[in-house]
């Protein structure tokens, strides 16, 4: 049984469609990152998951329970970090966590949870409305962790955190997943999503344009990697272009850049270059999630790409249709 099962979710506000026919699942112990530009429908999806909004169409179940009819029964097993909420006025961070412990009826020690998220004891006893954004996020994460939830729903958990805080969130997410919890989180920090997620869902204008591991998304778009080699003299680039899996070759001064769609093409291209010139230095850049995100959320027609598909399968490796020129585009960006 999946921790989250969304089937054909559509949410409309009058004439505006916030989410359209979204299908997605999150398995137990799995970390799924949810990406999308502002207004793509990420928070709307999360709000439906928690029963804050009623879907216009579709089915949404959390931990085996239909949350559209019975959101209450699963809340004790869900940890939520909402996006952009303000604290209860005049309550300390510790009191927020203690109230969550009391409500969930667990035996968690608020101080232990606050220590885990890196909120100092003296800060935990200050009014939460006086916190910096980072401190507040840490407190909110501690609230979400109360009761060892089976599902963690984190809406922009790293917003406002310093690099140490971002690293801490990453560690906690992995620890929770290792414990067996499913983690469903949205983020604008693509590096964070790439590092911690087992799969990534990319949302654009309310539609899920891709769901897969970053690696598979990279393969599907042909956005493999770029080999940059510094050579004594730039040779004829034709033989490099002919290597199977190489999508683009260019030279800039003494640097030759070879875009490779397939992993095996890198060494083959490098050997062929080494046969024709003296290679002094080599760097390899994988196409980043930022490239993928851009490729999936940029208007395909403007980019002159092939028709897009939708990949909403749950762990089935499906993804959006691969734009024909994406490999070159990715290589250029890398």
């Amino acid at each position: 049984m999946s921790a989250v099962e969304i089937d054909g979710l559509t949410k409309r506000y009058g004439d505006v469609t916030a989410v359209s026919d979204l299908s997605l699942s999150v398995g137990r112990g799995e970390v799924v990152g949810f990406l999308g530009p502002n207004g793509a429908g990420k928070s709307t999806t999360i709000n439906v998951l928690l029963g804050f909004l009623d879907p216009t169409a579709g089915e949404v179940s959390v931990l085996g329970t239909d949350v559209t009819t019975d959101p209450q029964s699963v809340k004790a097993r869900v940890g939520l970090l909402p996006e952009a909420f303000e604290p209860v006025p005049n309550l300390t961070g510790r009191e927020h966590v203690a109230a969550a412990v009391e409500t969930k009826g667990t035996d968690d020690d608020p101080d232990v949870l606050l220590e885990r998220v890196g909120l100092a004891p003296e800060d935990a006893r200050r009014p939460a409305e006086d916190y910096s954004t980072g401190m507040f996020q840490r407190m909110a994460l501690a609230v979400a962790l109360v009761g060892d939830p089976d599902l963690l729903v984190l809406d922009e958990p790293s917003a406002g955190l310093d690099p140490n805080g971002v690293q801490l969130v990453r560690e906690i997410v992995r620890e929770e997943a290792d414990r067996g919890a499913a983690v469903f989180f949205s983020s604008h920090i693509l590096d964070e999503v790439e590092r911690v997620s087992d799969r990534v869902g990319i949302l654009q204008d309310g539609e899920l344009t891709a769901v897969n591991s970053v690696e598979n998304l990279r393969d599907d778009l042909g956005m493999g990697s770029v080999v940059s080699a510094t050579v004594d003299a730039v040779p004829d680039l034709g033989p490099l272009q002919a290597v199977d899996g190489v999508t683009d070759v260019s030279a800039d001064g003494s640097t030759v850049r070879v875009a490779c769609a397939a992993p095996g093409a890198k060494m083959a291209a490098l050997r062929r270059l080494d046969d024709r010139a003296t290679v002094a230095d080599v760097t390899i850049e994988e196409s980043s999630l930022e490239d993928l995100f851009e490729a999936y959320t940029t208007d395909r027609s403007d980019a002159g790409e092939a028709e897009s598909g939708t990949g909403a399968g749950a762990g089935d490796g499906s993804a959006a249709g691969s734009p024909a020129d994406a490999a070159t585009a990715g290589g250029d960006r890398a």
Partner: peptide, 14 residues
């Protein structure tokens, strides 16, 4: 208005 309601209703409060 403050979004604080998501703190309360994100917990097992009906």
């Amino acid at each position: 208005a403050r979004g604080t309601i998501t703190y309360h209703l994100g917990l097992p409060n009906s």
